[in-house]
Simulated scan of single mutants.
Amino acid sequence: MTSTRDDADTWDLASSVGATATMAATARAIATRADPRLVDDPFAEPLVRAVGIDLLTRLATGEVPPDGLVEQVAIDVAKIRARFYDEFFLDATHAGITQAVILAAGLDSRAYRLPWPSGTVVYELDQPQVIAFKTRALAELGAAPTAERRVAAVDLRDDWPAALRTAGFDPAQPTAWSAEGLLGYLPPEAQDRLLDTITELSAPESRVATESRPNPEPGDEDSTKEALNRISARWRAHSFDSDLARLRYFGPRNEAAPYLTDRGWVLTAVSIRDLLVATGLAPLTDDDLRMGDVLYVAGTLGSHRPRPGVSPSGAVRRG
Rank of each mutant, 00 (worst) to 15 (best):
M1W: 06
D7W: 01
A8K: 13
T10Q: 11
W11M: 02
V17C: 03
A21T: 01
A21N: 01
A21S: 10
A21K: 03
A27H: 11
R28W: 06
D35S: 14
D35C: 14
R37E: 12
V39T: 14
A44T: 11
P46A: 03
V48M: 02
V48Y: 01
R49Q: 11
I53W: 10
E63Q: 15
P66D: 13
P66H: 02
I75R: 00
V77L: 14
I80N: 00
R83I: 07
F84P: 00
F84R: 07
D91Y: 01
D91G: 08
A92N: 05
H94F: 06
I97A: 11
A100P: 05
I102P: 09
A104S: 15
A105G: 08
G106Y: 09
S109D: 05
R110A: 07
A111L: 07
A111N: 09
R113F: 04
S118T: 15
T120Y: 08
Y123H: 02
E124G: 08
L125S: 01
L125G: 04
Q127S: 08
Q129N: 15
F133I: 02
K134W: 13
T135I: 04
R136V: 11
A139F: 07
E140C: 02
E140D: 14
L141F: 05
P145S: 11
T146D: 09
T146V: 10
A147T: 09
E148W: 12
R150H: 06
R150D: 00
V151R: 06
D155L: 07
L156T: 04
P161D: 12
A162K: 03
A162P: 02
L164V: 03
T166P: 05
A167C: 04
G168V: 04
F169H: 14
D170Y: 10
Q173K: 14
Q173D: 14
A176P: 06
W177A: 11
E180I: 00
L182R: 00
G184Q: 11
L186F: 01
L186N: 04
P187D: 12
P188S: 07
A190W: 04
D192F: 04
L195K: 03
I198M: 12
L201K: 10
P204I: 09
S206V: 12
V208S: 15
A209I: 10
T210W: 00
N215L: 07
P216N: 05
G219C: 11
L228M: 08
N229V: 03
N229P: 01
I231K: 00
I231P: 01
A233M: 08
A233K: 13
A233W: 06
F250C: 02
P252M: 13
P252W: 12
R253M: 08
R253G: 01
L260V: 08
T261A: 13
R263E: 13
G264P: 00
L267C: 00
T268N: 13
V270E: 04
V270A: 05
S271A: 03
D274V: 02
T279D: 12
T279L: 04
P283C: 08
D287T: 00
D287S: 07
D288W: 14
D288F: 04
G292Y: 03
L295R: 12
Y296L: 15
A298K: 15
T300V: 13
G302M: 05
G302P: 01
R307L: 15
P308M: 07
P308R: 09
S311M: 14
R317W: 03
R318Y: 13
